[in-house]
């Protein structure tokens, strides 16, 4: 299955019954797939909305009504959704949002890119909030993380972002949906479905009293702390004796893995740290390796965004080198091998 359809099928199997979206390349296979599958299942709701803005607000509506809901888009469309994402966070509503990132800024191009890292991990809209950001690097991970995203989102009542790109979306790899272990989730006692047999309630993010608004913010922060404690995921590859650690996620991590393998064949002690959650960021993992690693090579398909998180994790304790290709260019493993070996010999390892 193609990455885009893998995400769709995974969502359905995780109990997603609503999808709202607006066409944009390179993720169109996903809404197309959902339009078919959600017609097949009972209670399935699919709407091709008039805009991204409308789509994210439909997501809010379905979520507040108690349904499992998803939307997807690519970079410019995700920018349009930011207001709605901020509302979802303020209202504390779950939702799964997929971004098949393309080259930017502006209309950019439709090639795979990682230039929406800041937007995703810092909370791309207004206000003090975070979204959980999951970065799959294979079709199998797209399946596993999409399914888990719904549980994380419901558990913490917070939107979860899946950050991939056109390459992962278009690519086909064999996939199983059997890895999913549903979590135990709290009852949805906040939803708005008519005040039958209970007092009326409302969902809102407007809190005019500044003291109360401050408390709401602290409450969100406590939640984000919990997420940071519980949900960090990170993959480590050939790190044990590594002198250089490449740090990369998603498509770049795939390329980096190829490069690391090749460098190892040449006898270079190189490993890979692959963050799977971009927020919360696996800072502790990076910090842990700072004791044995002499150089961190941050490798991104952008002009350098995740590097800030690596530097924040290390707080100046180790040297960091950046290699990136923005604009939708897909670097080759050989490119990276050259960077690694030149650094390796320059540093005299």
């Amino acid at each position: 299955m193609r990455g885009n359809t893998v995400v769709g099928e995974a969502a359905i199997r995780a109990g997603c019954t609503c999808y709202f979206g607006y066409p944009i390349t390179p993720q169109n296979e996903l809404p197309e797939y959902m339009s078919r599958r959600l017609t097949e299942i009972e209670d399935g709701i699919f709407i091709q909305s008039e805009s991204e803005i409308s789509a994210i607000n439909m997501v809010l509506g379905a979520s507040v009504a108690g349904a499992r809901v998803m939307t997807s888009s690519s970079s410019p469309g995700i920018s349009l959704k930011q207001e709605g994402i901020s509302f979802l966070c303020g209202d504390e509503l779950p939702a799964v949002i997929v971004n098949m990132v393309r080259g930017g800024p502006g209309l950019g191009n439709i090639s795979p890119a990682q230039s929406d890292y800041f937007q995703s991990t810092r909370g791309g809209g207004h206000g003090d909030y975070r979204t959980v950001v999951l970065a799959p690097a294979s079709c199998q991970e797209m399946a596993d993380l999409t399914m888990e995203a719904f549980d994380i989102s419901d558990y913490y009542r917070n939107p979860v972002l899946i950050l991939a790109d056109g390459m992962l979306g278009q690519m086909m790899e064999p996939v199983t949906f059997e890895n999913y272990k549903p979590r135990e989730l709290p009852k949805k006692d906040y939803i708005i479905d008519g005040a039958k047999g209970r007092p009326s309630r409302f969902v809102r993010s407007l809190i005019l009293n500044t003291k109360d608004m401050e408390e709401h913010n602290w409450k969100l922060m406590r939640k984000y702390k919990m997420i940071t404690k519980n949900e960090i995921k990170c993959d480590e590859f050939m790190m044990d004796d590594a002198k250089i650690a490449v740090v990369a996620y998603g498509t770049a991590a795939r390329i980096a893995k190829g490069a690391v393998k090749r460098a190892r064949k040449e006898g270079l002690k190189v490993g890979l740290i692959r963050p799977i959650t971009l927020w919360p960021y696996p800072s502790e993992v990076i910090k842990k390796w700072a004791r044995s690693v002499s150089l961190f090579v941050v490798f991104e398909m952008s002009a350098g965004q995740m590097i800030e998180d690596v530097e924040l994790s290390l707080k100046g304790s180790s040297e960091v080198y950046f290699y990136g290709r923005p604009g939708g260019v897909i670097p080759t493993p050989m490119e990276l091998v050259k960077i690694i070996s030149s650094q390796y010999y320059q540093k005299g390892f």
Binding site: T25, P26, I110, G166, M167, Q170, M171, M172, E173, P174
Partner: peptide, 12 residues
């Protein structure tokens, strides 16, 4: 076998 299939897409 382990396989990836990557089509060209979009405007391309």
């Amino acid at each position: 076998k382990i396989v990836t299939y990557l089509p060209s897409y979009g405007a391309e």
